[in-house]
Each structure stands twice: as C-alpha cells, then as structure tokens.
Computed example of a mutant assay.
Amino acid sequence: MQINHKPVVTFLICIVTVCVSFYVAYQISGSVLGKSRITELTNFGGLTVEGIKHLEIWRLVSSQLIHVHQKHMIYNVLSILFLGIIIERTVGSKYMLIIWLFAGSIGTLFSTQFTPPPWNVGTGASQAAFGLAGFGLFLIFSKIQRGYIFLCAIVFALIPALYLDFKSVGYPKAGHSLSFVIGFGLAIYYFYNVKQKLVQVAPES
C-alpha cells in the first residue's frame, strides 16, 4: 500500500473539473453558477455517439468536466476528492487515472443510449464517482482498506446520487450502474493480477 503517495492526479482532476465547468457555465449563462441546457453542452465537449463516430475521442475526457447544474458538479467533485485521495494513495496515480478515465467515459457514453435525441448528450463526473465508489467498495469487502472515513466517503458518493436516480426514473441510471461495475471490476483485476505481479517481482529486485 502506497500510504505516502501524494494524490496528485485526484487533486488535478478536481481542480480541472471545477475550472472547466465554471468556465462553460459562464460562457452559456453568464454566471459561473448558472444552469446550462444539455443540448448546449454538445458544443463544449459533451459526449455523443456521433462525436465518437467522427473520432472526436477527446469528448471522452471533456464530457466528464462539464455539467448542467454547478451544484451537482460540486457534489461530484467532492465525491471524487474524498474517494480519490484514499484510492490513489493505495494504487498510485496511474491506476487512479485509469479508473477515472475508463469508468467515467464508458459510463457516460453508455448513458447516452437511454435518452432520445437531441438530449442524448453525455456529461458530468457522476459516472467517474460511481466507478471510484465501486473500486472503493471492493477495498472494503476485501479488507484492503478499513475505517469509517473511507466507508463514509463511499456512502457520500452513492446514496444521494442513487436517491436522485430513484426519484427521477425509479431505478439506478444505466450509466451509474455500469460505471460502478467497471470500478469494481478494475479493483478485482488490479489486486488479483497487477498486485500479484508486483509482489512476485519485488523479491528479485
């Protein structure tokens, strides 16, 4: 466990998300705390299947930085911050970035399949937060990480978001669910493949 590893990537993700989301909100509404229409966010990096077909791969990253509601953005950033600090200290910056990128982008793209056009634009950091929560839950189940602080961080990331999901559609949203599963799966892969290889190499070095 890299307990002295500085969570540089986590802080960078959070800072960039806040700056980009505020900037886009200001460009659209004239206020950093203003609300943006989902259709307007396409021009600012929102993720669409059509965009991926045109090889606009950068949208996989940019879509996670922009939000319709800035209050939602702040909640997502806090979730990523609380979870990311502990997870990055455990697995390092490289794998923290992988979790954020894969769980976030794939979940965001998947979420666009359940909304009719022109509102099928993937945005927001909640998918990444669910991916980190899935990764974190594996750490709890496998007793790699312990403590109420980390458990509270997972609850903070999941419960309010799930409440809103059930309130709006009656079930966990597809993008959130897939991102959670991806995060949990990445944790299994890391600790039963990558970590084992590191342990085997260590005595020889």
Score class of each variant (00 low, 15 high):
L132Q: 02
L132H: 01
N120M: 14
Q127S: 14
Q113F: 14
V121L: 07
A103C: 14
S111Q: 11
I140Q: 05
T108G: 03
G136C: 10
F135A: 02
G136R: 12
L139F: 03
T115K: 15
G134R: 09
Q113Y: 15
G136L: 09
P117M: 13
A133V: 01
G107R: 04
Q113P: 11
P118Q: 13
G104F: 01
Q113G: 15
G134T: 02
G131Q: 01
A133Q: 05
S111N: 12
F102L: 14
G124D: 01
I106K: 08
L137C: 13
T115I: 13
G124M: 00
P118H: 12
F141V: 13
F141A: 13
A129T: 00
L139C: 13
L109M: 04
I106R: 09
I106Y: 12
V121D: 05
S142F: 11
G104S: 05
F135D: 01
I140M: 06
K143L: 06
L137P: 06
N120I: 12
G124V: 02
G122Q: 05
W119L: 15
Q127I: 08
I140G: 00
L101G: 02
G104V: 04
S126Q: 06
A129C: 09
S105M: 07
I140W: 07
G122Y: 02
A125K: 06
T108M: 01
I106D: 08
F138K: 03
F141H: 10
L109H: 02
T112L: 01
A129F: 07
F130Q: 05
F141G: 10
P117F: 13
S126M: 07
